[in-house]
Amino acid sequence: METNTKILACEYQYLESSELGQVLTWLEEYGEKAAVLAGGTDLLVKMKMGNLQPDCVIYIKKIAELDYIKDDADALRIGATTSLATIERNEVVKTYYSALYEAVRSMAAVSIRNMGTIGGNLGNASPAADTAPPLLVYDATLKLVSQQGERLVPLNEFFVGPSQSVLKPNEIIAEIIIPKLGPDSGSSFLKLGRVSADIAKINVAVYMLRSGSKCESCRIAFGSVAPTPIRVPQAEAMLNGKEINEELLGAAAQAGAAEIKPITDNRSTKAYRQKVSKVILQEALQAAWQRAGGAL
């Protein structure tokens, strides 16, 4: 069948509720046959393209209790249906979580950010999801809920492969929990696309905690260079506990570039991704270190 994106050709049962409990009951009943609709910017495109034909569509954006940003003493908690635009406008995110702020700012356009949600960006499990690398370096945890109860899954155990995660058909993401960052810490996010509003050819996030002229702890995550967003532990190990200088950051960037496993696709070639990963990682490391108050 030829694709016609002017209409949504597939037919399905439409369910909506403002009660989370009702949605979980439906998910229990329909499981894999159901698609969860929040912002729709990915789901409706997939359905229009014929890549997904759910028997029922469950709309969750009317559930008020999933739309919030709470700045608690121990963590920043973001409800799954919080729009990307709401995150972008949040002062706490803007001031303290630079990598997440920069990632959201880099995403698509205003209209898409007004629609799209953080839970959707993660739940799709795209290797290119821009919110994933920042949340990985912040050591974020996801709260997944089903009728059986809730479970906490560290984000670095959430993604399994392209479009695959540990999220079960009867579950939804309820909350993203981001631990408070140390006072002498900094983070950054960089991305390359074909044009400014593009899906990433490659993206990277860095978090560094500083103790004097040493890096106490460092976390680095890449997107679009492996089947899932990934951390690069060897590069991180080169920086943990070390005196930081330009040379060491360069060497760590080299090591990080060697740890990724990119492919050639319609956005970029493997060779280009390999080369450019070192460059953007080095820049991201410099930015994060300087934001942590470190000198170079």
Binding site: T5, K6, L8, Y14, E16, L37, G40, T41, L44, V45, V57, Y59, K61, A85, V110, S111, I112, N114, M115
Partner: peptide, 16 residues
């Protein structure tokens, strides 16, 4: 504009 914010009407189910 949906409640004053720009959004894409080709990717919105009207029932929502």
């Amino acid at each position: 504009l949906v409640n004053g914010r720009p959004m894409l009407s080709c990717l919105i189910l009207a029932v929502t």
